[in-house]
Simulated scan of single mutants.
Amino acid sequence: MLGKKPVTAQKRGETRALCLGLGMVACSVIMYFFIGITIVPLYNKSVWTNKGICELKNASIKEQQQCLFNDGSSDENKFQYPCLDIMVNLTPVGQVVKLYHQEETVFRNPKCSYIPPTLKNYTAVQENVEKVRQNFTEAQVFYCYYDPSGQEATVLLYRQYLPEFLLFTFVWPSLMLIGGVLIIVLVKISQYFSILLAPQYRTGI
């Protein structure tokens, strides 16, 4: 009876460890799938891979031609905000093009160069957009990202979906997958040695 209790406890521990390992592997697979259907397509759409120099040509706020931003599916979730329009001269190609803040700006509202972080207070939104316009006016010359193929005739101030960003998103699921596989391997090794040593314990008894 005394010999059976440690063996039973060991089996329970191995079963729990094995479930933990399998759970970690399953979670990592789900995370890989989620990244593959959300972040990877956005990364593939980001064609602004080359870095160049942009010279400001015009930075204006279209007060009378405000843009609409829809954060959902219904018309009730629409907000109005001043539309900042920035045109720059892309020196590598010598062409005047429209500048956007980042990829998300192009996808959400291609009419405006900048989308305020919050749209609840219109006065604060106006001040934020005006401050951004002044920053561009003071800078005049700055780095930007453009499409080297020339198919996308716009440029970005910042790239949101860099290769480093994509690699970083795979860090946690990869660590979880490695940890889960390691736990499963250790449990299997423990079970293998238990089977090898079992006859010796029986002979000793």
Rank of each mutant, 00 (worst) to 15 (best):
T118I: 06
Y114N: 05
S60F: 09
T38H: 08
W172V: 14
T154C: 04
N128E: 15
Y122H: 10
P148G: 08
L90T: 01
I205A: 11
G21D: 06
N89A: 03
P117R: 11
L186T: 01
Q140T: 10
G13E: 07
V185Q: 08
Y100G: 02
Q64D: 15
M31W: 12
I189G: 02
P163N: 09
V106M: 11
V141A: 09
E14V: 00
Y81A: 01
P6T: 05
G150E: 12
M31C: 09
E76T: 01
K78P: 01
F142T: 05
K98T: 09
S60V: 14
I86F: 10
G23F: 11
V185S: 04
I184K: 02
R159C: 07
V129R: 05
F170R: 01
V185W: 13
F170D: 03
S194R: 09
C27M: 13
K98R: 15
H101F: 14
K11Y: 11
G52R: 08
K45A: 09
G72H: 07
I205N: 12
P116W: 12
R159P: 06
V97L: 15
D71G: 05
G13Q: 06
T8W: 09
V97M: 15
E130K: 12
S46A: 13
V96G: 00
K5H: 05
G21K: 03
V7E: 14
I61Q: 09
F193Q: 09
N109G: 00
I61F: 08
V97R: 07
T203K: 14
G94L: 04
G180S: 05
S190F: 04
H101V: 01
L197S: 08
A17H: 01
L177F: 15
L20Y: 05
Q126V: 07
Q95V: 06
P116E: 14
G72F: 09
D75W: 05
N135C: 01
F69C: 00
V97Y: 09
I189R: 13
I61L: 10
E55S: 07
C27I: 06
I195Y: 12
Q66M: 14
Q102E: 15
I86Q: 10
V97C: 04
G3P: 01
F79A: 07
I115Q: 07
T38I: 04
N50G: 00
F170A: 06
L22F: 10
T91F: 04
L186P: 00
P6G: 06
V93N: 05
G3R: 12
L68P: 00
L167D: 03
D147A: 03
L166I: 12
L157G: 02
T105M: 06
S174V: 03
Q140K: 15
E127F: 03
K45S: 11
I39Q: 07
E14N: 11
L162H: 10
L2C: 02
Q80F: 11
S174D: 07
S113P: 04
L68H: 02
Q134F: 06
P41R: 03
Q191G: 03
V25I: 15
R133W: 11
N70Y: 05
F34T: 04
K98V: 04
Y145M: 06
A59V: 06
K78M: 03
L56M: 08
V29M: 13
F33G: 02
